[in-house]
Design a protein around this nucleic acid. Structure first.
Lengths: 223, 223
DNA sequence: TAAGATTGGTTCAACATTGGATCAGATAAA
DNA sequence: TTTATCTGATCCAATGTTGAACCAATCTTA
């Protein structure tokens, strides 16, 4: 039997693919170019690429080219779409992970102006006479803590979480879970966080924030 | 996806948008001007801008022009745009926050199948003979740890981080920072993480992961 | 208010690139 | 010899880019 040149070319291609070649845009050269490069007829290259196509390494599109399948996992839009389906429990878990850390960062990194902004949000929330107003300044308090933390990515993750929590299923939840009594608890806990921030105490801010979020979780999820 | 001049132009435009260009009035230049500037037909620019419109980066009005939605900082598109500009230092900070926690979650939540998948990625990475192949399985290792953690939001955040790290400035960085010696260090550290996971030891997994990320940070940022 | 300029929206024909398919002939192994 | 493979060539179909023209909404200016 003649040795299968196409097979050799296929394995060479696979090696080059797994070695990261063509990974920037996930696109292989045109078959005609590969044929020239390997010094082989285009038919042979087509057969080799056909093998790669068979085992799913590659997809081909007429008029566009041949593309690696390994390189296009997901678009950012689809990630965000999936995030929008996050469950309240998962969300609370992440909040308890991120917000204490953000508070600790804030204690070390914040400028005086930024801390004053946090305090202002806290004050306004405490003075708020109506529930929606309190809610707004409550959220603003948390937001301003993140604003202090000097890590843009972290800030944006928080923005994402906020955007998701502002969607309808969460809205219902909040309404059910608020009361005047709880409002006062939240104010006291915010106060504790704020004091740790002003004392530039990262650990204190962290634990105060974590404690607060435990309260929120209990109220929200009834645990 | 496919190689498209329009695609390249879209990413160039996105980059310029997120770098703050056109932010004063939130208005992009006319398509005809952009076409001239890029030395490309107007149709092609229209297609590129169409991509931006699809993912909500931009809105178009006949007779008025094309406008950034990012002027509204609460839009999800603008958050993502800002995330894309995250600095390597910020990114490492967040990785050190999230990945140890993910490893701890994984130690308690993962199924045996999931853990085996992690081990498989580790093995393949260790056996890899070429650097790009190692890199791929290195990334896959971290990804599979997140896959174990049973928190969808956290998983998606990691996907976001990965997508950002796959963009060009990071690409250069990785290339500079790898060597055979470092590869072996990484393998040992991954091994430690893996063992903690299989021992169902959350704290151990957490500290092992944190230690590993400290190494990565040192290599990447030269600290 | 009316006229003209600017700008995005749409369509079209022409060309280039690329994978898909086929065929006749040469080559090499069984 | 027989058979599978490779070659070189040709044509097809799908896609992307170009350049152009015209439309419709909007803004500017007289």
């Amino acid at each position: 039997m003649p040795k299968l040149v196409a097979n050799d070319i296929a394995t060479m291609l696979k090696k080059r693919i797994s070695s990261g070649e063509w990974l920037e845009d996930g696109r292989m050269p045109p078959e005609r170019d590969l044929a020239a490069e390997f010094g082989v007829a285009r038919n042979t290259v087509r057969r080799a690429v056909g093998f790669l196509e068979d085992d799913g390494t590659v997809v081909r599109h007429v008029g566009r080219g041949t593309f690696l399948t390994a390189t296009n996992p997901t678009s950012i839009a689809s990630m965000v779409a999936r995030m929008e389906g996050t469950s309240p429990a998962d969300m609370m878990e992440i909040r308890q992970l991120l917000e204490p850390a953000a508070a600790a960062f804030a204690a070390t990194n914040a400028s005086a102006t930024e801390l004053n902004a946090v305090r202002e949000a806290h004050q306004t929330a405490c003075d708020a006479m109506e529930m929606p107003e309190f809610e707004h300044w409550d959220a603003e308090f948390h937001h301003r803590v993140f604003a202090c933390c000097r890590n843009d990515f972290l800030k944006e993750i928080h923005n994402l979480m906020r955007a998701i929590r502002n969607q309808s299923p969460w809205f219902e939840m909040k309404k059910r879970s608020f009361s005047e009594e709880r409002r006062q608890v939240y104010c006291r806990e915010h106060q504790a966080i704020l004091e740790a921030l002003f004392h530039r105490d990262p650990e204190g801010a962290k634990t105060a924030m974590l404690g607060h979020l435990k309260t929120v979780e209990k109220n929200l999820l009834g645990r």
